[in-house]
């Protein structure tokens, strides 16, 4: 028993070390004075300062944030509608087909999503002249597409759990269906909507592959800029940027987790 538990502890430790050692070393080296990425030259925050003086990075961060914000909002809207259709409308034929289709992007390779969207945009441009050029708009559409799939999964699980009789009670007390939706349904599924939005937002910030496919010359997202910088050799300011992103993402995860915990107790 004793030996077994020690073995488990060691395995767990090694596993976590494997996962987090690179991240920790990245964070440490972002405070490195030296220009050489692998040699420690003393503590400094100069790479952070440099980062904030780099217009390309700042521009890309702004573009990424905009795209993530808009696409996450779209994804949650589409995901909510899809979830309602799937959970609440009992009788329609294409239901299981639609259910499969909405979750397909979860398992589809990103390369294929990117490629197919690119082909779609090109074809649409030829047929109806919209979207005129590829750039921020096409990335938003692309991100909203796969973000909606994730959002739908999160929202559906909440809708399934929701007690339908509280909506009936609201109706019984004199609320018309639209009122019921805003007074009862929406507040009850709100935690799921927030989680779905945060998830879609993070996925959009993260995405390199799909964005690279559907982007045009004018629009580079942060991951695209980082990737192109790294190809020219790893510079320490990328470490600094990565550290900031890790910080933001961790914060986001903690906030979401706390939020989910609270709302679970509220249920």
């Amino acid at each position: 028993m004793q030996g077994k538990s020690r073995f488990l502890k060691i395995t767990a430790f090694l596993g976590f070390a494997f996962l987090y050692a690179p991240i920790i070393s990245l964070v440490i080296f972002s405070f490195n004075e030296s220009k050489l990425v692998t040699v420690w030259g003393g503590f400094s925050t100069k790479w952070y300062a440099e980062l904030f003086r780099d217009p390309q990075i700042l521009e890309a961060a702004w573009v990424s944030a905009k795209i993530a914000f808009v696409s996450a909002t779209l994804a949650v809207t589409v995901g909510t509608v899809a979830s309602f259709v799937l959970i609440r409308f009992s009788k329609f034929r294409a239901k299981s087909l639609l259910s499969m289709m909405i979750t397909a992007p979860l398992v589809m390779p990103e390369v294929i999503i990117g490629l197919s969207l690119l082909l779609l945009f090109v074809a649409m441009e030829g047929l109806i002249g919209w979207p005129g050029s590829r750039g921020v708009l096409t990335i938003i559409i692309a991100h909203a597409t796969f973000g909606a799939a994730y959002a739908a999964v999160v929202i559906q699980s909440r809708l399934v759990d929701m007690d339908l009789s509280i909506e009936e009670a609201a109706q019984d007390l004199g609320a018309k269906p639209v009122r019921v939706f805003f007074d009862v349904t929406l507040p009850v599924i709100a935690p799921a909507l927030v989680s779905a939005w945060l998830l879609a937002f993070t996925l959009s910030l993260d995405d390199l592959v799909v964005a690279s496919f559907v982007s045009g010359p004018g629009a580079s997202t942060l991951p695209m800029v980082i990737f192109s910088k790294v190809r020219l050799g790893v510079s320490p300011d990328v470490n600094a940027l990565a550290t900031i992103i890790i910080g933001l993402v961790s914060l986001g995860i903690i906030v979401t987790a706390l939020h989910m915990n609270r709302s679970k107790r509220n249920l």
């Binding site: 007690d163 509280i166 009670a169 019984d172 004199g174 609320a175 007074d183 009862v184 249920l267």
Partner: peptide, 20 residues
């Protein structure tokens, strides 16, 4: 006649209180 327009009220077996 939809439920919201009926002159009746109901207390649900599951209580159906609004959790929020």
């Amino acid at each position: 006649i939809p439920p919201y327009a009926r002159p009746t009220n109901m207390m649900f077996q599951s209580y159906a209180l609004f959790p929020h």
